[in-house]
Write a protein that binds this DNA or RNA. Structure first.
Lengths: 226, 226
DNA sequence: TATATTTGTAACAATTTTGTAACCTGAATG
DNA sequence: CATTCAGGTTACAAAATTGTTACAAATATA
């Protein structure tokens, strides 16, 4: 029933390149969609892909810009390989800052392309699997970054989602404010510990009467449970 | 030198499933041990594993029961994934109350399994420095800062936990009030020595009839024992 | 750039934990 | 038999922790 063929989206403004990519990667067993522009790509549901192949030089919206949108606005961690004729050190750095997983300069051999695609899909595949963790009436859909309360999705911001997902996926486990800060905000970012309290208050409010499922054990931290 | 391969224990009453699990997870680089029953699992030293995969439906001792024993009697916080054909909401809740980290309904794809195993091991690995010390019917779980009395966690505040943990982990050793003050409150904080008496009275009350296991030797101090 | 949304902070209220003093008990002492 | 002393207990006060609100800063969006 489940089709586990990997889906790849290739975006390039040259029809020829798209054909070459599509033909060859399809032959390797991948399901390949193509777009002739970033705009066209953005109209699609990008969450279902396992890999993006992005040409850097696209019309008004460049491949870099598209990658940035994918990462930041759509919040997808799907791997990206940039295709480009430009090969300056500068471009490389920009690409990797946006979370590019690889970088392929045109002209490239199909053999090289498919090797990189395979390598990247192999190492990234596990996290692309939708993981639904359920506790009580709550379901965490990590692939789409959504949390459902009795089948209704909560309207959570990113930080709120991260915290609640952490709690639900570790129901019963107590997290101190610092645990939460390091897991959700990261270890470099410096914010007041009280930020955690305020964010949790916001989550509770959005959870309505279920808000009291986020418990606090004074002196220890917060946890999820009934 | 150090072998950092993660150790997984799979418990299932179907030989076939064990083989599939063992074969596939070994292929992913994990060290996999298998047991055909909960009883067999309980004869092993379970403290060395990084993850348990437990079938819910096992002979006399179910997977839930086994998980409960692992959590409460052995005081291990090792993550658990339940494998089961049963998929009712009821089962889910029971599983999460026991601290299941995930839940996988049979039949499951190996890909899905390995994704979840990887995800759980990644997030659980750093903090799993659980130290369980047992004395009498009491177990101290230093990782989660919990003390169990006959498998039931005591509702201790921070200071109360610190004192009781000190006593249990050094059962029989006598601590003067000043010993306790310097170990629990620290050397900078200045509080009355009688604070210790009051706090111990509070612990005793929360321990119920077991409260008399905290002894006092007049003129010397307090200690734990029967 | 203007506007909306998200995130961070500070201040204050509510709650929980901790500390103190006073009183009580019982054993040891004289 | 009164006195003293160590420890137990209680009630209340102080302090610490947590909850909440309003607003500022940062970020995203148009």
């Amino acid at each position: 029933m489940t089709n586990d063929r990997r889906r790849i989206l290739a975006v390039d403004d040259e029809e020829d390149i798209l054909e070459i990519l599509s033909f060859n990667l399809s032959g390797e067993g991948y399901k390949v969609d193509t777009c002739i522009s970033a705009e066209e790509a953005l109209r699609k549901d990008l969450s279902g892909y396992d890999l993006f192949l992005l040409d850097v030089m696209l019309g008004p919206i460049s491949g870099f810009k598209l990658a940035e949108k994918i990462r930041k606005e759509l919040a997808l961690t799907t791997p990206v390989i940039f295709l480009t004729a430009r090969d300056s050190e500068n471009d490389r750095i920009t690409g990797f800052n946006l979370g590019a997983d690889d970088y392929l300069a045109k002209p490239f051999s199909i053999r090289e392309l498919s090797a990189r695609v395979k390598a990247i899909l192999r190492r990234s595949s596990p996290e692309q699997v939708t993981m639904a963790t359920v506790a009580g009436d709550f379901t965490v859909d990590t692939a789409n970054k959504l949390i459902y309360s009795e089948s209704v999705p909560l309207e959570l911001t990113r930080k709120e989602y991260e915290i609640l997902a952490l709690f639900i996926c570790n129901a019963g486990k107590i997290f101190s404010r610092n645990d939460i800060l390091s897991k959700v905000w990261g270890d470099e970012v410096i914010v007041t510990v009280r930020t955690v309290d305020v964010t949790i208050a916001r989550i509770r409010k959005k959870m309505g009467e279920k808000g009291n499922m986020i418990k606090n054990k004074s002196g220890y931290g917060y946890y999820f449970g009934d």
